[in-house]
Design a protein around this nucleic acid. Sequence first.
DNA 1: CGTTACAGTCAACACCGTGTTCAATAATCC
DNA 2: GGATTATTGAACACGGTGTTGACTGTAACG
Lengths: 191, 191
Amino acid sequence: MENKPRSEDRRVRRTKKLLAQALTSLMGQKQLKDITVKELTEKADMNRGTFYLYYRDIFQMLESIEDELLSSLNLILDEKLGETPPNERMLIELFEFIRMNQQIMDVLLSSRGDICFLHKLNRLIREKCISIWGITSEREGEFDYNYYFVAFGCMGLVKAWINKGCVDSSERLAKRVNGILEGQLIKRTAT
Amino acid sequence: MENKPRSEDRRVRRTKKLLAQALTSLMGQKQLKDITVKELTEKADMNRGTFYLYYRDIFQMLESIEDELLSSLNLILDEKLGETPPNERMLIELFEFIRMNQQIMDVLLSSRGDICFLHKLNRLIREKCISIWGITSEREGEFDYNYYFVAFGCMGLVKAWINKGCVDSSERLAKRVNGILEGQLIKRTAT
DNA sequence: CGTTACAGTCAACACCGTGTTCAATAATCC
DNA sequence: GGATTATTGAACACGGTGTTGACTGTAACG
């Protein structure tokens, strides 16, 4: 995050930042559909017309926030993808990123969040899995079930982590994921 | 599904059914936020005021459809919960239910769907897992990560299944889930 | 420092979906 | 068949939307 091109006018940066803060705050209180441009700009203490200078509506605004978040995550993961073995370092990096953006991630994954973000995140994780395990495209279909299971599973695990306030360390979480991938799931740990 | 109490007037059943069909159809075309009561009732070919006789707004209508769906799923699963071993039969039952409600499930889990439904489904699956594996409440927190991983993972798997049009049999899918729970995840199957 | 460019403000506007009402009409139930 | 209840159609005020134009103030740049 905080990767805005410095070419933007300082006033523009300020405006967008205030809007994003107001939105994150409001989303903690009510559903997205109940948030109006009117109250958003009132909370951000600016003119309603200013909003329309940058966004079409509230949903499109959230979408652009999501895409920004995911593209910076993508950058970070790709940096660590070259290393060997990639899994451990990459997972730690992933969890650290989430911890850094805890507030907005919490909102986006909550029941007040956005299912589009969930699907975009799912796709990103799946792509990384395919990169790491190097399945060729013609065999891809065969493993779709596993990739979907793992990608959604990871998101669930992150959700559980955030619910607890991210108290466990990223290292510990990464170890746990590796453990799960190596076959230490419920039945084994529960006995 | 199709569990409406027969005490309702035939006209009421007809109205609700038409509205539900119109909504499912529209949700396949556009986001929920862009669907108005006006166009919904026009599609269902009825007076706009009739909608308000039964629902507050579009979102509340979807919510009641979801809850109905989940409560009938819950009933079915509980019936099979007493059997031993419960896993296999229960999973098959789950997948059959999804296949029967393929259209609405597809919409609800898609990127045009509803994240609330996803969370409600997640909670339902987690509850069943806890029932089956019988973890006492004080140890529950310890296994939260695993339950979330499995519950979300199953939803991802279902999503992948629906994406393929539910061509694989419920039996095969149930076997695959059991396989995953027993530790046959990516690393093993990919080599 | 001063000029130019442009971001933000304020008020006003038509537009449209909302949610509710009422009397009239139609369908269902028993 | 008669009582009951669901649905219709029209009308209404309300409020958020998206856009406009003239203005005011701040930032960027030489």
